[in-house]
Amino acid sequence: ENVVSAPMPGKVLRVLVRVGDRVRVGQGLLVLEAMKMENEIPSPRDGVVKRILVKEGEIVDTGQPLIELG
Results as ranks from 00 to 15, higher is better:
residue 1 E to T: 13
residue 1 E to S: 01
residue 1 E to L: 00
residue 2 N to I: 07
residue 2 N to F: 10
residue 2 N to M: 11
residue 6 A to D: 03
residue 6 A to K: 01
residue 6 A to Y: 10
residue 6 A to V: 08
residue 7 P to A: 04
residue 7 P to S: 07
residue 7 P to W: 10
residue 7 P to I: 06
residue 8 M to Y: 02
residue 8 M to R: 06
residue 8 M to G: 15
residue 8 M to C: 00
residue 9 P to G: 02
residue 9 P to Q: 06
residue 9 P to I: 09
residue 9 P to D: 07
residue 9 P to N: 14
residue 9 P to M: 10
residue 9 P to L: 14
residue 10 G to K: 01
residue 10 G to M: 01
residue 10 G to F: 12
residue 10 G to E: 03
residue 11 K to R: 09
residue 11 K to S: 13
residue 12 V to C: 01
residue 13 L to W: 11
residue 13 L to S: 15
residue 14 R to S: 08
residue 14 R to H: 08
residue 15 V to A: 13
residue 15 V to R: 09
residue 15 V to Y: 15
residue 15 V to G: 14
residue 16 L to H: 14
residue 16 L to W: 06
residue 16 L to N: 14
residue 17 V to P: 11
residue 17 V to H: 11
residue 17 V to L: 02
residue 17 V to F: 03
residue 18 R to S: 14
residue 18 R to Q: 04
residue 19 V to M: 06
residue 20 G to P: 04
residue 20 G to E: 12
residue 20 G to S: 07
residue 20 G to F: 02
residue 21 D to L: 05
residue 21 D to I: 04
residue 21 D to W: 01
residue 21 D to P: 04
residue 22 R to C: 01
residue 22 R to S: 14
residue 22 R to M: 15
residue 22 R to D: 12
residue 23 V to A: 04
residue 23 V to P: 15
residue 23 V to I: 09
residue 23 V to H: 07
residue 24 R to V: 12
residue 24 R to H: 09
residue 25 V to A: 03
residue 25 V to I: 15
residue 25 V to K: 15
residue 26 G to Q: 02
residue 26 G to V: 08
residue 27 Q to I: 10
residue 27 Q to T: 05
residue 27 Q to P: 03
residue 27 Q to M: 02
residue 28 G to Q: 05
residue 29 L to Y: 01
residue 30 L to Y: 08
residue 30 L to T: 12
residue 31 V to F: 06
residue 31 V to L: 12
residue 31 V to G: 13
residue 32 L to W: 05
residue 32 L to D: 00
residue 32 L to M: 03
residue 33 E to R: 07
residue 33 E to T: 08
residue 34 A to Y: 04
residue 34 A to S: 12
residue 34 A to F: 11
residue 34 A to T: 15
residue 34 A to I: 06
residue 35 M to Y: 11
residue 35 M to S: 12
residue 35 M to K: 14
residue 36 K to Y: 11
residue 36 K to L: 08
residue 36 K to I: 12
residue 36 K to R: 11
residue 37 M to T: 11
residue 39 N to F: 08
residue 39 N to R: 09
residue 39 N to Y: 12
residue 40 E to D: 03
residue 41 I to R: 13
residue 41 I to D: 00
residue 41 I to P: 15
residue 41 I to C: 01
residue 42 P to V: 04
residue 42 P to L: 15
residue 42 P to W: 14
residue 42 P to D: 09
residue 43 S to G: 12
residue 43 S to I: 03
residue 44 P to L: 09
residue 44 P to H: 12
residue 46 D to V: 09
residue 46 D to M: 03
residue 46 D to T: 03
residue 47 G to H: 08
residue 47 G to N: 14
residue 48 V to W: 07
residue 48 V to A: 07
residue 49 V to A: 09
residue 49 V to G: 05
residue 49 V to P: 05
residue 50 K to I: 15
residue 50 K to Q: 09
residue 51 R to G: 15
residue 52 I to L: 03
residue 52 I to E: 15
residue 52 I to N: 03
residue 52 I to Q: 05
residue 53 L to I: 07
residue 53 L to N: 10
residue 54 V to C: 01
residue 54 V to E: 12
residue 54 V to N: 05
residue 55 K to W: 12
residue 55 K to A: 13
residue 55 K to D: 05
residue 55 K to N: 06
residue 55 K to P: 03
residue 56 E to L: 04
residue 56 E to S: 02
residue 57 G to F: 13
residue 57 G to I: 10
residue 58 E to R: 08
residue 58 E to F: 06
residue 58 E to Q: 08
residue 58 E to V: 14
residue 58 E to P: 02
residue 59 I to H: 04
residue 59 I to L: 03
residue 60 V to P: 01
residue 60 V to Q: 03
residue 60 V to I: 12
residue 60 V to M: 15
residue 61 D to Y: 08
residue 62 T to A: 10
residue 62 T to D: 10
residue 62 T to F: 07
residue 63 G to K: 15
residue 63 G to R: 14
residue 63 G to W: 01
residue 64 Q to P: 03
residue 64 Q to G: 02
residue 64 Q to K: 08
residue 65 P to N: 07
residue 65 P to R: 03
residue 65 P to D: 13
residue 67 I to Q: 15
residue 67 I to Y: 10
residue 67 I to W: 11
residue 68 E to N: 05
residue 68 E to C: 00
residue 69 L to M: 12
residue 69 L to D: 04
residue 69 L to R: 04
residue 70 G to Y: 09
residue 70 G to N: 02
residue 70 G to V: 03
